[in-house]
């Protein structure tokens, strides 16, 4: 009551208290982009249509290549532009195009393959992400190129992509989950090894390219056999 009264009589403080200036604009923006990558991963958990799954993957890859451009520009690493362009061409254009074509041949649009309810899956994924943040927080990671918080986010992307593979039982989700694992590692790569993009960048893009080839072959083979994109039928081999 006393406090109320003083507030009433004392009127207005002249200015708001001074804030710490907050993070720099660069680190805010890059963190926001990595968060977009993570949120896309969450959206993949939910997405019902195989086609939208592929689109989400393309969008996520786009965010990753934008991030690469930011890192390249801010740290003056010329090679990263090349990585960004390669990532864009491969992951935003080529791989989604291949997957979309495979899907068109498969005639299966809607895949309800959630093993759990969406809200439950999201909650599990939140817990897993928090775990990733806590673990990464303990490590002495000093990134020359990006704010360290992004490392936790990248790790969360990786773990959620595992969840995607585990909790969804259709071929497209599992394939996209494995690819988006690559996106998470890509981000981790920008954080830790931005100075050496050539070797690790080649590693990543290479990984993706060949994985796409293998997955493409297998999706086709699988569909040719089972007439469905669900992995529920894959249970002959046990024990």
């Amino acid at each position: 009551m006393l406090r109320l009264a003083t507030l009433w009589t004392a009127g207005v403080p002249a200015v708001a208290p001074a804030f710490s200036p907050g993070p720099s604009r660069y680190s805010s923006v890059t963190e926001a982009i990595t968060l977009v990558v993570l949120l896309t991963e969450f959206a993949m958990l939910r997405a019902g249509l195989s086609r939208s799954q592929v689109r989400l993957y393309a969008f996520q890859s786009f965010a990753v290549s934008v991030l690469a451009v930011f890192v390249a520009a801010n740290n003056g690493i010329g090679e990263l532009y090349a990585v960004a362009i390669l990532a864009f061409v491969l992951k935003v254009v080529v791989v989604p195009a291949i997957l979309t074509r495979l899907l068109r041949d498969a005639y299966v649009g809607l895949v309800a393959s959630h093993r759990l309810r969406v809200a439950t899956m999201v909650l599990i994924a939140i817990v897993v992400s928090v775990l990733a943040f806590i673990v990464i927080k303990q490590l002495p990671i000093r990134s020359p190129s990006l704010p360290t918080a992004t490392m936790g986010i990248a790790c969360a992307v990786i773990l959620v992509s595992f969840l995607l593979v585990i909790l969804r039982s259709d071929v497209v989700s599992q394939a996209v989950g494995t690819f988006s694992l690559g996106n998470g590692i890509d981000v981790a790569n920008f954080i830790i090894a931005a100075g050496l993009p050539l070797i690790l960048g080649v590693v990543l893009l290479f990984d993706l390219l060949v994985a796409a080839v293998v997955f493409g072959l297998l999706i086709r083979a699988h569909h040719g056999r089972a007439r469905t994109l669900s992995t529920e039928t894959l249970e002959q081999l046990r024990g």
Partner: peptide, 20 residues
Amino acid sequence: MAGAFLLAALAVVVLYLGSG
């Protein structure tokens, strides 16, 4: 609702565990 919660929880996590 889970989506809204996800965003809000991530905001706290990013802030608390990262520099955010």
